[in-house]
Write a protein that binds this DNA or RNA. Structure first.
Lengths: 206, 206
DNA sequence: GCGCTTGTGTAGTCATGGTTACAAAAAGCC
DNA sequence: GGCTTTTTGTAACCATGACTACACAAGCGC
């Protein structure tokens, strides 16, 4: 239902940028940002470099658009899971379980596109990916802070750390079962950590 | 005290390979394998490419030697911590706490060289790094299996996942305090997971 | 000193990878 | 049908990066 105005004007495009973004998402997810070259992309799209740059500006630009599409499509739906009325520990456990499931769902495109993209070697692409992961971290922290302000940073740090680890383990080829095992183990500590008074980080200092 | 035999034979080296490995370790740890070029290395060593290749064979070869040096120098000493007579949960918690401390100790060289190296784009370098991380994972799994065979894989997966996450968080610049907070939180679940009967991975399947 | 061995310096090769100049093509507008 | 607009295809450019050919230098054994 993309409203398709009368007709743009000049020579019509020989390819569909939206469809290309889907192809790009698959390639970036399978091989990682750095390992996908512009040549790979143009070949997969069936176009030549000038069309690529006219449509997307740069490889990092395409990646930014791809990330936007990914979050609304295949990423962990944090805003849906972290409803304000939901028990905090339970909701966070669901986030971890959902991440495990999604990251291992497609063994050819394992892990989280944003988390993995945040570690690539291109500054622009990295920045785009980090913006997404930072937004996710903020969402988690604010969700916890609404009811447990003092535990928010710690719990958000923990959940994000485990998610990053899960994404890496998924990319190493670990099975869904093993990821789910880690996620469920990680979830067990959430309740306890919430109700722990004065838990401000020095418990392991001895 | 490196026994310095009579004299090697031909023209003497203008540089010390062992010292170069120390320099390489710093560079690789600071910037990551991919982001360090052979030109960077030769410049840092004060030599030219032919000397580099004569001494180390390839960039990945140097990295392999650097990793060996790293494990005996700055890596988490798993074999020392995971003594067979030690309570399992306590020992694993120490591993996590030690990782947090080490990964955040030097903000210019954050995270674990082996864990991060295992995600680089060069197949040979990746293989060398993965051999190390796999050995570490095996050490953890066998340590747990000695007393809790059924929990070994799950606990090893969990500890490794958190360590990978901690390394990533350290590289994002998170403070020592925050990493220690995550590590101590992650450590809280270990005891419970050990004593949980029939905990074989299906708890989150509903 | 002469040959042998080994390391060094100069100056490259070769591939890859992101990006672009330029002219031709394909449509709309009038 | 000409003018304008936008996209396309060919063919590059330019930088980087891993690696090497080759001749010379510097030590040892004799």
């Amino acid at each position: 239902m993309t409203t398709q105005a009368p007709r743009p004007r000049g020579r019509p495009r020989r390819f569909d940028p939206d469809q290309a973004i889907g192809t790009a998402q698959r390639l970036f997810h399978e091989r990682g940002y750095d390992a996908v070259s512009v040549a790979d992309l143009t070949e997969a799209f069936g176009i030549n470099p000038p069309s690529f740059y006219a449509a997307f500006g740069s490889k990092a630009g395409l990646f930014a658009r791809t990330l936007r599409h990914y979050t609304t499509t295949a990423g962990v739906p944090l805003s849906d899971i972290l409803r304000p009325d939901r028990p905090v520990a339970e909701a966070l456990a669901v986030v971890l379980a959902d991440a495990a499931r999604r990251y291992a769902a497609d063994s050819d495109a394992a892990g989280c596109l944003a988390i993995e993209g945040a570690r690539c070697n291109d500054p622009d692409a990295r920045k785009a990916a980090r913006a997404l992961t930072a937004a996710g971290e903020d969402t988690i922290r604010r969700f916890v802070a609404a009811t447990h302000p003092e535990a928010a940073e710690r719990l958000a740090d923990y959940v994000v750390t485990v998610m990053i680890g899960l994404s890496a383990m998924a990319r190493e080829g670990h099975s869904l079962d093993r990821l789910q095992g880690v996620a469920s183990m990680a979830g067990m500590v959430l309740e306890e950590a919430l109700t722990m008074p004065g838990f401000t980080g020095q418990t392991a200092s001895g």
